[in-house]
């Protein structure tokens, strides 16, 4: 049996979402000296971080600093990259997600991910896109799907725009709507952690603002880790910020502190725009 079994068996849908499942200071996810490699190349070097529940955590740093690779190690997507492997431990509620008995598919249901470009499934309707994550885990009851699809679309602030055309193809939506659809799809299976990899990088300013506002709502239910290129965005949306540079985590702390009184001069140089 999987280590994650007790949680994985919690398949009964939360018909009404509990406000906050945990107290704010509780650590939901923790990495212990995580290194991520592509073959012989080390992209992330021994990063130890803690992600408190119901907080937004921003990972910032210049291109190629390893922040996206690190993010992908948190739901075992990195190991799907060519020659991708990691060392160290990633703990979700105290359990090592790289443990030999952990099922990666079950894990990814608990740690969802939104990508840089909107990735709706083009052959599916809006409804089916949101329901996809539930159906693949064997939840097919129509009434349950209806409820979760509506809730998830509402959480993603998309319900009012699409409720009249749930059967339309997901490709009929605009880019910003598609990205919110992907957020709805990610939260539909009720994950514990939501990872966002530069979710607004391909969107216009208005759509970006909507998604940033959304993060404030989402963090009531989920623990959020967001990779962003945009320092203003990190400053606006996150509670804590970690600065990555050349594969190492240089500095981590409350966002206000990182942006006002960084301890490290590389951090200061980056946030003041002197490189990166």
């Amino acid at each position: 049996m999987s280590d994650l079994q007790p949680v994985a068996s919690r398949t009964a849908p939360p018909l009404v979402r509990a406000p906050a499942r945990t107290s704010a200071s509780e650590v939901r996810m923790e990495t212990v000296e995580v290194s991520a490699m592509y073959g012989k190349f080390t992209a992330v070097k021994e990063v130890s971080l803690r992600f408190a529940a119901n907080r937004v955590h921003a990972l910032i740093g210049p291109s190629g600093c390893g922040k996206s690779t690190f993010l992908r190690a948190l739901n075992r997507m990195h190991e799907l990259s060519e020659h991708g492997w990691i060392t160290g431990r990633v703990l979700l509620d105290g359990q090592d997600i790289y443990g030999s008995r952990v099922n990666a598919m079950q894990l990814r249901r608990r740690v969802g991910m939104v990508f840089q470009r909107p990735t709706p499934f083009p052959t599916m309707s809006i409804y089916d896109n949101v329901a996809a994550g539930l159906r693949v885990h064997g939840r097919h009851r129509r009434a349950e799907l209806d409820t979760v699809v509506e809730q998830s679309l509402q959480q993603a602030a998309l319900w009012d725009e699409v409720k009249e055309r749930l059967r339309a193809s997901a490709m009929t939506l605009s880019g910003g709507q598609q990205q919110r659809l992907c957020i709805a799809r990610t939260v539909a299976p009720s994950p514990d952690v939501v990872l966002l990899d530069e979710p607004t990088a391909s969107l216009d300013p208005q759509s970006t603002q909507r998604i940033e506002e959304l993060l404030f709502e989402l963090k009531r239910d989920y623990t959020i880790v967001i990779v962003t290129h945009n320092m203003q965005q990190a400053a606006r949306v996150s509670d804590t910020t970690s600065f990555f540079y050349m594969g190492t985590m240089v500095e981590s702390g409350p966002t206000r502190q990182i942006f006002t009184t960084p301890a490290d001069e590389q951090t200061e140089a980056y946030i003041t725009g002197r490189f990166g």
Binding site: N75, L80, M105, G112, T119, F121, T123, G133, V136, P189
Partner: peptide, 27 residues
């Protein structure tokens, strides 16, 4: 088929074979 679509399915907890058949091949 863009690899981002494949990744999106895998990140949603799709097993590899279902990603291939119901997302990639279907697309």
């Amino acid at each position: 088929v863009p690899s981002s679509l494949r990744e999106a399915a895998l990140a949603l907890g799709y097993p590899r074979w279902r990603t291939s058949l119901s997302i990639v091949v279907r697309t």
